[in-house]
Design a protein around this nucleic acid. Structure first.
Lengths: 145, 145
DNA sequence: TAAATAAGTTAGGTAAGCCTAACATTTTTT
DNA sequence: AAAAAATGTTAGGCTTACCTAACTTATTTA
């Protein structure tokens, strides 16, 4: 049985997804740098994600997401995006601060509150950043985390 | 030097304040019940708050907040109230869910985002619950956490 | 007031998530 | 290809925040 992901492991998934979008191959060092932790900690965290069948990796090799891991990562990313968007457009929070807050809030917020943000963004006449597809986001969030 | 409070210790302060508002004396058992943890855990957590000069307590006696502890608790309470109010009135989240979310968000949100919520509540024509004084709240949050 | 119950404490244990230091492997450079 | 540098792993430690079990102290009640 797969356990609920912790905030920490969700962060790992998120950066692995991001790194794999930008770069060819994702390495322990990249992850450690992105999260500002040591390589030892990254190795350890990746091990638990491997046990959860979320990532694939051979010894000394690069890290990649499984389908399951990618889905989970996409969910986290969507949450992040919605929250950030909401903070920036509705609450007028500076982009970098909004980003940090989103990173923390995304792990603790309820589906209802996220839904509220989505609804608010949809009906309001705020400028939505182009790559935020709210319909898709709402869909994704229906599946359980 | 007093350390930054963790989310957990902030929760303790919050319930101690709440319990001391309702009841005459606040006991370890009350705190443990309110937070759904064992008495042993409560005892331990209270010990760290005693070291931080946030609460007073004699062996086997009741728990009370110091001035310092009360101030800290009031700040957390204000944060909680603002967030809950925002979720309920702006995002139309159910009261109980809003309450749970506020409890988690209050520990991770930036001053800017809280300020954004306050500003939004102030200018919007939402019904604000009577005991939420936004001016006072904004003041309180200026002092460092 | 003695026995029963409730309240509080202490000791020892667990899990997450980080760390450093030492070591192993791989890649790069000369 | 050998040496140097970078990368990854392992072992052992620390802190927070919980837990259970056993015990002590206080309160209630028969």
């Amino acid at each position: 049985m797969s356990k609920a992901l912790t905030p920490s492991t969700q962060d790992y998934l998120e950066v692995i997804l991001q790194l794999s979008e930008n770069n060819h191959s994702t390495r322990i060092t990249d992850i450690a740098n992105a999260l500002n932790i040591t390589k030892a900690s990254a190795t350890q965290a990746i091990d638990t994600l491997i046990n959860e069948k979320m990532v694939l990796k051979e010894k000394y090799g690069p890290v990649s997401l499984t389908k399951k891991g990618e889905l989970a990562a996409l969910k986290v990313k969507k949450m992040h995006k919605i929250i950030r968007e909401f903070l920036v457009t509705v609450l007028q929070v500076d982009a970098d601060i909004a980003n940090k807050d989103a990173c923390l809030i995304e792990h603790v917020i309820s589906p209802q509150t996220i839904a509220g943000m989505i609804a608010f963004l949809e009906k309001g006449n705020y400028q939505i950043s182009s790559d935020l597809n709210l319909k898709k986001a709402a869909e994704l969030l229906k599946s359980d985390l």
